[in-house]
């Protein structure tokens, strides 16, 4: 049913989404925490920047990433300088693009979850001798667990579903940047509707299961502290 190339695209997609999700959690968590806690006046700016991918056409984001990471862009020059080469049309480039593209889907649920915890548990932890980092891992993370679940699932699913950014930044290189959504596009271009169906059905089923998990397993995302 699925050809070898299709399966390779599927596996690549899972790999991209898996790595991107881990990176998203690593970078998204401190950003979300900072956005909730900071009194800084830059908060609005950072919030808007993080949310940009929600409203921008993926081609716009992809275009600028291409320019920035290309051999003449500042990021590209830097990566070339430190010996990483340039990122466009590589696996690494797809990862970078995916992380940026899915950032709001991870940061926003975390922000909501962190804000819902409120000040009190942090104060309680401090009066029980827990330092800030200790408090974060022993109190904030467990209390925000539903938020982390939502962020992980949304970040992963959204990365799986991306198309425009990957096409712009990664191109269409089998085994390196040709993810499922691009492969479906290829099939349709070539009028191979049956093959397109096979992959499309996979994505449809996957997305449905993900959302089912999100709404079914996590029915009370707002379970408040102390209640």
């Amino acid at each position: 049913m699925l050809s070898e190339v299709d399966i390779a695209a599927l596996l690549l997609t899972l790999k991209v989404a898996g790595i991107a999700t881990v990176l998203l959690l690593i970078f998204g968590t401190p950003i979300a925490w900072w956005l909730v806690r900071t009194p800084s006046r830059w908060k609005g700016v950072v919030n808007a920047l993080v949310a940009l991918p929600l409203v921008l056409p993926p081609t716009v984001l992809g275009f600028y990433l291409l320019v920035l990471m290309g051999p003449y862009g500042p990021v590209g020059r830097f990566t070339a300088e430190v010996g990483l080469g340039t990122l466009p049309f590589t696996f690494g480039g797809v990862i970078v693009a995916s992380v940026l593209y899915s950032l709001p889907f991870v940061v926003q649920p975390l922000q909501t979850a962190f804000a819902a915890i409120g000040e009190r548990p942090l104060e309680v932890a401090a009066t029980l001798r827990a330092g800030p980092l200790d408090t974060f891992f022993s109190v904030v993370v467990p209390l925000a667990r539903p938020g982390f679940m939502t962020a992980t699932v949304l970040g992963f699913a959204h990365t799986v579903g991306e198309f425009g950014v990957v096409l712009m930044v990664g191109g269409n290189i089998p085994g390196k940047t040709r993810v499922v959504s691009v492969q479906i596009y290829n099939h349709v271009e070539a009028m191979e509707y049956a093959q397109a169906h096979g992959l499309a059905a996979c994505l449809l089923a996957f997305s449905f299961v993900v959302l089912l998990l999100l709404y079914g397993v996590n029915p009370k995302p707002g379970r408040r502290y102390g209640q």
Binding site: R120, P121, E123, V124, V139, P142, L143, R145, Y225, G226
Partner: peptide
């Protein structure tokens, strides 16, 4: 410190 309202960690 004993707070006014319930301050136990719910997790």
């Amino acid at each position: 410190y004993v707070f006014q309202e319930a301050s136990l960690f719910s997790h």
